[in-house]
Amino acid sequence: MIDFEEELKKFQPIPEVKEAEATIYERDLTDMVDIIRQVTQQQMTQQMAAPDMVRM
């Protein structure tokens, strides 16, 4: 049986056009490429700090 109040909570107001700018800025654009970039950067930093370590 569907609970009306519980189901109603699942409905959120749809953003209006005036809120489009905020919606765009809130969008998290971090993707996996950014993550591997960060990982690669960390690795390179570590390698430079410890040149004796084996490179990947």
């Binding site: 749809i14 953003p15 209006e16 056009v17 809120e19 489009a20 919606t23 765009i24 969008r27 654009l29």
Partner: peptide, 13 residues
Amino acid sequence: IGETVLALREWVI
């Protein structure tokens, strides 16, 4: 599906 602002967001990005 009627989410106009979300569509606008994706196209602007």
